[in-house]
């Protein structure tokens, strides 16, 4: 951490909590699943820790929520609650739905033109 970095960061008292909406959603999913008892906070901290300590993690912490989401996916797959293949299939479906949605309208999964064929 450079002096200017630290100074700049230390001075930001009102910075936004999340820089993009998906980060807020990923954050809230973890809180909601913990409150529901799907995993304990210790389990979560271990999963997150393994991710943020990964050698490829960004030195400035800018990929923190990328790591957060990877930890969540990993934990849910490990617990057998979510199949990795389903995550990939639905991610692709959401991308297709986004492309098929006219600009300015909300992106809905139903807009995926391949929904009938893929059944996701």
């Amino acid at each position: 951490m450079s002096r200017s970095e630290a100074a700049a960061l230390a001075g930001t008292r009102d910075e936004a909590v999340f820089s993009e909406p998906w980060q807020a959603e990923a954050f809230a999913l973890v809180v909601a699943l913990n409150e529901r008892g799907v995993f304990s906070w210790t389990e979560w901290a271990d999963a997150l820790s393994a991710q943020v300590r990964h050698p490829d993690a960004a030195a400035d912490g800018s990929d923190y929520y990328d790591r957060w989401l990877a930890a969540l996916e990993g934990l849910l797959v490990h617990k057998g609650l979510v199949a990795q293949a389903d995550v990939e299939a639905l991610t692709a479906a959401w991308h297709r739905a986004a492309h098929a949605t006219p600009h300015g309208q909300p992106i809905l999964l139903e807009n995926d033109p391949m929904q009938a064929e893929t059944g996701v």
Binding site: E20, P21, W22, E25, A26, L29, Y65, D66, L69, L72, E73, L76, V82, D86, V87, E88, A89, L90, T91, A93, W94, H95, A98, L109
Partner: peptide
């Protein structure tokens, strides 16, 4: 990343 969160 947004698509992955939505998928999950």
């Amino acid at each position: 990343m947004a698509a992955r969160v939505r998928a999950l």
